[in-house]
Amino acid sequence: MPDSSMALPIGRRALVRAAAVAMASAPLLRIERLAAGEPDPEIPNEIVAQLIRARIGDRKPVRGKVTLDMPAAAEDGRIVPVIIEGLELPMTPAQHVKSVYLIVDHNPDPLVGAFHLSPQLGRLEIQTRIKMKRLSWVRCLAEMNTGEVWADYARVSVSLNGCG
């Protein structure tokens, strides 16, 4: 695809469209994943385990409170929409989400982003677009300033390698 066609308006439309699809289909897809007996995503490979340890130490992420919405099948691995939400998590000076880590297990560089937040944001909601190389678990970890780490996982298949 020529570079000039990747201009802003196309990307934005694609994001909105993909986000709408992801939001509409996420609950159903999650049920399908469970039924298919997927491997336990809470056991990362060694590279990912080291990366997680470097960020949160020996704390164990607990599934819940935060949601990672992604398409179950992404056609273009160069542009995979991601929505992270944790609307029931507090965002006050005393108790708030300090950092959110977004990790793709099978990417060449598994840490896609670390988002450091503050109470001024009012709530946890981050939307972006990432690259994916191939079928992989994607991990979202939300670290509270009080120490808890909440997590959600998505298994995403990719048709076109977005990482080279």
Partner: peptide
């Protein structure tokens, strides 16, 4: 990292 898509977009809340 370079794992964020070309022409990076991010949406976030602000109180």
């Amino acid at each position: 990292t370079s794992g964020i898509s070309r022409d990076p977009v991010v949406s976030f809340p602000l109180l």
